[in-house]
Simulated assay, not measured.
Amino acid sequence: MDSRVRHIAKSITWRVIASATTFTLTLIFFGKAEIAMASWLTVAETTIKIAIYYVHERVWFKVSTKLNNKMRHIAKAITWRVIASATTFVLALLIFGGHDDAMEKATYIALIESALKLLFYYGHEEAWYRINLGLDNREKNKATS
């Protein structure tokens, strides 16, 4: 099975976790009266970040490092969090820009989601490290190299 299938599956499972987190935080900060706008933020974030996450996975798949597995997972989690939180912040500002304290609320959402999702992402990486989906060709290619 191709590694791209693995990266697509990882992208989807991560987006479910991450989007649920962002949706919940948005409702906490902007209130349940803004459920439609929170939904728009979640849809926009999901759509954009699936593509960004896929590219992130492809880059890390091709990067050769001397990091052990734990350190590599930490490095991937940090790079992804910076990219993802900046994206959430910008989207929240665009969608909620007309609200009072939109900048402050978007900042809180980005900061809190950074902390939560850093932990969630590390756990996601650990779980996927134990799943062999899409690694067959990589292992065969290493053996023939």
Rank of each mutant, 00 (worst) to 15 (best):
E139L: 13
L25A: 04
A115Y: 01
I35R: 03
I109Q: 01
F29H: 07
E34Q: 10
T26V: 15
E113F: 02
V63F: 10
I50Y: 02
S11N: 04
A44Y: 09
M103S: 12
K32D: 04
W128L: 06
R72T: 09
K142P: 11
L119D: 07
M71E: 07
T22W: 06
K49Q: 09
L135A: 09
V5T: 09
A106M: 02
A33G: 04
F29A: 07
L25W: 03
S64I: 11
Y108Q: 03
I12T: 08
F96D: 04
A44G: 09
E113P: 03
Y129K: 08
M37W: 12
G97E: 12
A115F: 07
Y53H: 05
A102K: 02
I83E: 02
N137C: 13
V82W: 01
L91N: 05
S3H: 07
A115I: 13
R4T: 12
A18M: 08
R130S: 15
A18P: 11
A92R: 02
R58Q: 05
H73M: 14
L135G: 08
I48F: 10
E113C: 06
I83N: 00
I112M: 03
T26I: 14
A75I: 09
A51E: 02
V59A: 09
K117M: 15
F120E: 08
Y122S: 06
E139F: 14
L135M: 12
S3M: 07
L27T: 01
G134M: 04
K32L: 10
R138V: 15
R130V: 13
L135V: 10
T46G: 15
A75P: 09
A86G: 05
V5P: 06
L116G: 01
D100G: 15
